[in-house]
């Protein structure tokens, strides 16, 4: 499988990039690390006339800390994020999530911004052109019906990025820059929940993700766990991120954010489960209640080779496990 033909544009600065996004809106794709995009192009999931490369935008790389905030340039590689001493020390959950993406051969190229922009996946969609020609195009590929659910005009493709759940749990914000200027929004608002266009810019919008900001004070502990069928290469069957703010070690939970990947058309926050913990001590019965609630809050469909009830079971188990570990609670 060869790549389709395209024009390759390599703007030198952010200021040059935005007008190109405008000019070629709807017929271009932005390439950061390229590890997901190139596969999608080979499979002819997209055939853009233009590829706009961000590789020259040095300003969008790097990690720094100021005023209780860690700022990460979206072009920082996942390997860079997972290996950065600052991240390992202050945001180990993020380091873990970045380290668990794909395989060791992808992480030196794949970027954190690209991972946040990861397109939703589905066993009927992430296939070659030939494969897909065996049936009507699905909703996500521009057709009418979702082959997973047989519903019309609805796409149930699954978001399966590893990094977003952690960043949402950490209450990260992102900066988007477009022709109208820039805007800052909480990361969770970046995701639409619409499988066809799962985030605000993935559909070819003329905006660019330029910064990721993570407040350090939002939590006292954060952890990410990924369940996949093999320890490398695979996407998560389920990934769970939890950030807790405890008033003291093993103390009362002031805030709990539980965010799950692999179970819906966006990173799914189990808000009710988080509320179940808030104001509570780290006791087994509250943890159990929170994990049960989290499992009830998700609605996975069969978009990969694993069944929904198995995913729900994993969420129940993993949420409880993480909270116990963060809360210092013995089994």
């Amino acid at each position: 499988m060869r790549l389709p033909k395209f024009q390759y544009l390599e703007p030198a600065t952010l200021a040059e990039t935005i007008p190109l996004l405008m000019e070629h809106q709807g017929r271009s794709k932005v390439i950061a690390g390229g590890t997901d995009l190139l596969v999608a192009l080979k499979q002819r999931l997209h055939t853009p006339a233009y590829l706009i490369s961000l590789s020259n935008l040095a300003a969008l790389k790097g990690i720094r800390e100021e005023d209780g905030m860690v700022t990460i340039g979206p072009l920082t590689t996942l390997e860079g994020v997972s290996a950065a001493p600052l991240i390992r020390e202050k945001l180990p959950g993020l380091a873990q999530a970045a380290w668990e993406v794909g395989s060791p051969l992808l992480r030196p190229m794949a970027t954190i911004g690209g991972n946040l922009c990861l397109d939703n996946r589905c066993r009927f969609y992430n296939q070659s052109l030939f494969w897909r020609s065996a049936r009507q195009p699905c909703c996500k590929a521009g057709g009418k019906v979702c082959h997973v659910t047989n519903k019309e005009n609805a796409c149930f493709s699954t978001y399966s990025g590893d990094v977003a759940p952690v960043l949402i749990a950490l209450q990260a914000e992102i900066k988007l820059v477009g022709s109208q200027g820039e805007r800052i929004l909480p990361l969770e608002q970046f995701y639409t929940g619409d499988g066809r266009r799962p985030n605000l810019i993935g559909g070819g919008e003329a905006e660019l993700l330029t910064e990721i900001r993570i407040p350090l004070s939002s939590h006292t502990g954060c952890m990410y766990k990924k369940y996949r069928l093999r320890d490398s290469i695979d996407f998560p069957v389920v990934g769970v991120a939890v950030a807790l703010r405890l008033d003291q070690p093993q103390g009362i939970c002031r805030e709990a954010k539980i965010v799950i990947t692999g179970v819906g058309s966006r990173p799914v926050e189990a808000t009710q489960a988080g509320e179940k913990l808030t104001g509570r001590e780290m006791r087994p019965e509250f943890i159990l209640a929170a994990s049960e609630t989290a499992a009830a809050e998700i609605h996975p469909v069969r978009t990969d080779q694993v069944g929904p009830s198995f995913k729900r079971h994993l969420v129940r188990v993993m949420v409880a496990e993480i909270i116990r570990e963060l809360g210092g609670v013995d089994r």
Binding site: M1, I31, K42, L51, E79, L105, M109
Partner: peptide
């Protein structure tokens, strides 16, 4: 040819990468 097996690994500036997922121009 899809970055899933490592057979095409080369070192790019010292780092191992799947060369099937690297545009030559880059």
């Amino acid at each position: 040819n899809q970055g899933e097996c490592g057979a095409c690994t080369v070192l790019l500036d010292g780092k191992p990468v799947s060369s099937c997922l690297v545009l030559a121009v880059r």
